[in-house]
Design a protein around this nucleic acid. Sequence first.
DNA 1: CTGAAAGCGCTTACAG
DNA 2: CTGAAAGCGCTTACAG
Lengths: 352, 352
Amino acid sequence: MEQPLTESSGQDVPDPAPRAATIHDVAARAGVSIATVSKALNNGGRMTPETRARVLAAARELSFRPNALARGLHSKRSFAVGLLTDDVYGRFALPVMAGVSEGLIDHGVSVFLCTVEDDPALAQSHLDVMLEKQVDGIVVAGKRVDRLVPVDLAGLTVPVVHVMSEGAPDRVSFRPDEAQGAELAIRHLLAGGRCRVADVTGPVRFRVAIERAEAWAGVLHETGLDQPGGGALFGAWSEAWGHAAVAQLWAQQDRPDAVFCGNDQIARGVIDALRERGVGVPHDVAVVGFDNWEIVAKETRPPLSSVDMNLRELGRQAGLTLLALINGKDVQPGIRALPCTLRVRASSGGPA
Amino acid sequence: MEQPLTESSGQDVPDPAPRAATIHDVAARAGVSIATVSKALNNGGRMTPETRARVLAAARELSFRPNALARGLHSKRSFAVGLLTDDVYGRFALPVMAGVSEGLIDHGVSVFLCTVEDDPALAQSHLDVMLEKQVDGIVVAGKRVDRLVPVDLAGLTVPVVHVMSEGAPDRVSFRPDEAQGAELAIRHLLAGGRCRVADVTGPVRFRVAIERAEAWAGVLHETGLDQPGGGALFGAWSEAWGHAAVAQLWAQQDRPDAVFCGNDQIARGVIDALRERGVGVPHDVAVVGFDNWEIVAKETRPPLSSVDMNLRELGRQAGLTLLALINGKDVQPGIRALPCTLRVRASSGGPA
DNA sequence: CTGAAAGCGCTTACAG
DNA sequence: CTGAAAGCGCTTACAG
């Protein structure tokens, strides 16, 4: 026999302020103690199937939602982590952030968003608030693998994982495997029959520019090809530099039949400059970019082949690794470089 | 006389697991009850200045950080809100999100990030987790003002504010004032001496395309000018459409001396197409875009004038309004359209 | 001015 | 199998 709904007034008027049901309400409705409710809903300590069923039914009927604050107070786990990022524009951080969140939500872990730009005071403020909220850990997501996010993370008692940002050596840091990504691009160009692959990339002060250029030079060297342009051409991460670089390369004798670009914006500049010179892409020159920033890569004429850093997956792994650390698993500190993939489009001979 | 540090072992060995100080530790150190500590740190109930100073000093010395979980359990306020967004790419949502967070952090309110794409199950999952965590309210940030984020928000007992997404009429919704933004652009072009301003915009199924086009037509009508192209040209939000639209407009007799574009990508296509035809921008034709998406607007040749929707400010206001609702202030439901601003660059005669 | 006590909603030994 | 009790860290009437 079901217990009557004593809370109900029997009328159709909905309660004006429907106070959320607590474990006490469930206990009362199921005719058991709150301890039994807790056990039925969680660890499932021994009890008759009937009791458990009764509790579960009562919980469902009352739309019982356990209060995570109370639970956390006891368990010393908030099931929340902080996500600190200095990438305001968000081109790199956003996929990473989505990945972190995606990896954690299945485990009931929520993510606090903390965008801090380059303001250390703001960063500290976010950090304080998060620590008061008892976050179980922190993900630091940057926009450059060779830069620190502007906040002092030393002395934290919660685990920290870095993504796309420089981390202390005793921490875990996730980043794309730049060299592998660059090699992928170069080998793709060589496989397409190109033998004079130039490299037009960003400023030399960016570690990724160096790494991608070294990988480029490495593959050419190993294959016995020389470097059109006389070496990697370092410039800015901009379309304008793509234009300038083409002017420079085409002023020379030994013109390339392919250009590997440091990012998609440079690649776009290169493609536009080539078209304006009447050089056919991909017929005369193949072009590959880096970042696979779809909104750019899809609109170049022709669409741009590009290396994808799989930032979302990077974020997912970072989130899951943080979770492992939180759960006391011991995780090797150091840098984890995750593989890139190549998205082939028309600019390097893919489908038009 | 200061009480001695009874916790300290007197040696230089740091505690291996420095359990965070609680209100009890502070009380012990200050030689008062926990109730007094609480009062000294918060509402500041009456007490001698000496007592208060002693408590404050003890708290500082122990780096005491009040546990927000415990505090929230009692106050029924978590000082956290949820931010639900379906904008994965994040071009629009990210500034909004940063604004929300920025507006709230000063009030000690944190933001849970929930990216849900178009997956209702995921959205529900995020919602459940947030409600368990006792969020004080929810911001729904979309990418289109005429679309719902895919989740059932009815029956929620916490306040909800919408930004850049369609909300129920009894809710508060923030969005840019599209008409005002468009007018700003058109009047700027007219003030620059243009008298044949065409409109090349996005798909007719987007409400913003309609609204911007109506504002365009309205200003022209009021000024007694006609509509080059015979009306607004609706197409796609793409560069390709910008090219096609120019082809279409230039095939006609009555060519425009200015083009108002529905977004910056269209504008870029228009500018490129004009240059390829040898039409000078801004000399022969002025161009204005919409979104002020800097990474595009700054790299067009010449740089693009564009309407800025001030998304960050939109987010800030949404956050603060949610806070007002949480605090029981009564806020008028309905749509709040916030003004846009115009960023003038070389494409409409601004500084080169 | 200050503190003992109750309570926020839950979990977890420990008895029965 | 089930429940009374203590406790997580805080706040807030209420006494003294």
